[in-house]
Design a protein around this nucleic acid. Structure first.
Length: 227
DNA sequence: GCGACAG
DNA sequence: ATCTTGTCGC
């Protein structure tokens, strides 16, 4: 029983040992956003592919959705075991593999430096970065209110990411490298993927697609409307 | 023991 | 994540 918890943690630690934080080695031409939605014990994984750099006109060139059942509950620090399979499935469903993936969740800004983005990066051997809507761990100073303002996220003396104001006046994003990229590279990518919303466009797109799919599934389960 | 705690 | 209407502000 408790042995299972140890196994899960050992698995996480061995994956953490494979995470590489380094400057980008190759230019990024295709970026994907990945997110999940859920209903009951089902996880809907979604991935949206965009050209990059998507300077002014964002070009969405593909979208993928997968639905998987799971029995793994949401446990802070172990989100990967619940959502990674569906997200990876969605990524693999894309017509082309992305050069980088922006994940709705943490990268190395995690107790064992293996958040959802890092976990997926290692398993897929792809560049990944996390853009989370809230904090899991770390201390920071509130960044300025203007879009682009940022402040470092620390775990003790180690900088594990950046708290970034993606849009003036909104709650900041928690950006951290996932795999095969560094903090500056992760922030640069998030900034160049922003349009007029709080979330990077690829992630926002994946989020919308996932929740739309969830609503459709629920409608089917409930059957046609009756009066 | 108490509080924190991605989605 | 999800349950949810109106409402304040740019």
């Amino acid at each position: 029983m408790q042995k299972i918890a140890n196994f899960i943690r050992d698995t996480q630690n061995s994956l953490a040992a494979r995470v590489k934080i380094t400057a980008l080695k190759r230019p990024i031409k295709l970026v994907a956003g990945a997110d999940a939605s859920c209903y009951g014990n089902n996880i809907i994984g979604s991935a949206c592919l965009f050209t990059y750099p998507s300077l002014d006109k964002l070009d969405k060139i593909d979208e993928s959705i997968v639905i998987q059942e799971t029995d793994f509950p949401y446990i802070p620090g172990f989100l990967s075991f619940r959502e990674a399979p569906a997200l990876i499935g969605a990524i693999k469903g894309l017509r082309h593999m992305p050069d980088a993936i922006i994940v709705d969740g943490q990268g190395i800004a995690h107790p064992r430096r293996i958040g959802l983005a890092s976990h997926i990066g290692v398993l897929l051997d792809t560049v990944t970065l996390g853009a989370a809507k809230s904090r899991l761990i770390g201390t920071y100073e509130e960044p300025g209110m203007e879009k682009g303002s940022r402040s470092p996220l620390f775990d003790s003396a180690e900088c594990i990411g950046v708290v970034l104001r993606s849009r003036t006046g909104v709650r900041p994003l928690f950006v951290s490298p996932g795999h095969l990229i560094d903090i500056d590279g992760a922030v640069d990518m998030v900034l160049s993927c922003l349009s007029r919303y709080r979330l990077p466009e690829p992630v926002r797109c994946a989020h919308n697609a996932a929740s739309a799919a969830r609503q459709q599934r629920e409608a089917i389960l409930l059957g046609p409307p009756s009066e």
